[in-house]
Write a protein that binds this DNA or RNA. Structure first.
Lengths: 150, 150
DNA sequence: TCAAATGGTACCATTATGGTACGGATTGGC
DNA sequence: GCCAATCCGTACCATAATGGTACCATTTGA
């Protein structure tokens, strides 16, 4: 339902935890601090490291640190790191045989536009923003008029 | 990967086809016109009818018509009709036991904000917009600088 | 009465996801 | 030099979601 995966959700929680701590942390420490199983934490940390959101130090006294200051890491980057390049539709990243149909191809540019809008929405929120517990914007009032459409 | 389902994709194709035709169409006509299997078309049409995006007439000489003019139907409505209420995160629509943790709850309001941004992005494009094959906006130039993040 | 159409539901194959485990590679301390 | 602690890569399986199809009931016009 156009929903991020649980691992992506975990990655946000983990990154917020790490940003608040500030120090280099082992996967075990992060697991205990965030109440997420060690194996799962490990998986998430490795994905984030591969995408240069985290830095890792191997060997004894090793661990993970943020690769950049929280303000420089956007939610879009985190989602992309965990779920691959942001592509709302299938034809955005893979070639499809039926895409050569006359009626579907004109839609592609529109999907790209929608895709871009979603991407910029995710890019507008940084890890730094997620550190402050209470945001300034109010959401509930804006969401309600869209629930019932006649 | 934050991707719409194939059925949602089909629903867009079907609605564009119907909007271009303008007349009342049977599911068989739509199936043949859009190259989507009849059973699948039927499933999509029923979902769209339940959400008041289409009107249906039963019995012989029955069929489907758009419930509103194309300008009044947004992509957000279509996605919501096919995939349920737009909720990027799990905690947005279901209660979760672990959500009572101190570190995860502050994130909820941020997800709501992101959710709203995505929703308004999808709401900004109407079925009417999808009818013109070549849109006015250019997307490729904007997308490229985001592919590699160091 | 019959044929054509929508409505509802149930089913299964395929795919994606979530979660875990295991062995290998690296590094600091004794 | 050895050992323990840690990250790294990958493979595995259970579960859930999705895609696609089929079937029968209901409705309605000729």
């Amino acid at each position: 339902m156009l929903r991020i995966s649980k691992l992506t959700d975990y990655s946000i929680v983990i990154l917020v935890f790490m940003a608040k701590d500030g120090n280099s942390l082992t996967s075990r420490q992060i697991s205990e601090g965030s109440n997420i199983p060690l194996s799962t934490v490990s998986k998430v940390l490795k994905s984030l490291t591969r995408k240069d959101i985290l830095c890792s130090t191997r060997g004894a006294t090793g661990g993970y640190t943020l690769a950049k200051i929280p303000k420089k890491t956007s939610v879009a980057e985190i989602v992309a790191a965990m779920e691959g390049p942001l592509a709302i539709t299938e034809c955005s990243d893979t070639e499809h045989a039926t895409c050569s149909e006359e009626h579907t191809c004109p839609l592609k540019s529109h999907w790209n536009h929608i895709n871009l809008a979603v991407k910029s929405a995710l890019r507008s929120v940084t890890l730094q923003d997620l550190l402050s517990p209470i945001p300034s914007y109010t959401v509930n009032a804006v969401t309600s008029p869209y629930t019932n459409i006649s």
